[in-house]
Amino acid sequence: MRTSMFKRIWLFYYEGFKGMTPLGKTLWLIIILKLFIMFFILRLFFFQPDLGRYSSDEEKSNHVIENLTQTE
């Protein structure tokens, strides 16, 4: 029964993607390209988390408190 349900879900998506209209295919291509640019170009090369260099929350807190208390 379980296998049958999973198979039905799998077939639903498989047939859906297989029979997709040209519009659907174009939109998926855009989504994939967009995600690739975001995660493999922007995120990897341009958006390193500023607090990522600290390993613990305590270090991160200290860094932010230092920033916040230096008003000059």
């Binding site: 939109l27 989504i31 995600l35 341009f46 916040l68």
Partner: peptide
């Protein structure tokens, strides 16, 4: 609707990247 959805979907992720990189004091606060 699908066209709008496909173009818009995941664009908010950029905001998450910016929070971490450009707005670290803010995102921590």
């Amino acid at each position: 609707f699908a066209v709008n959805f496909a173009i818009g979907v995941a664009t908010g992720i950029i905001l998450e990247f910016q929070f971490g990189t450009n707005w670290s004091n803010y995102s921590w606060f």
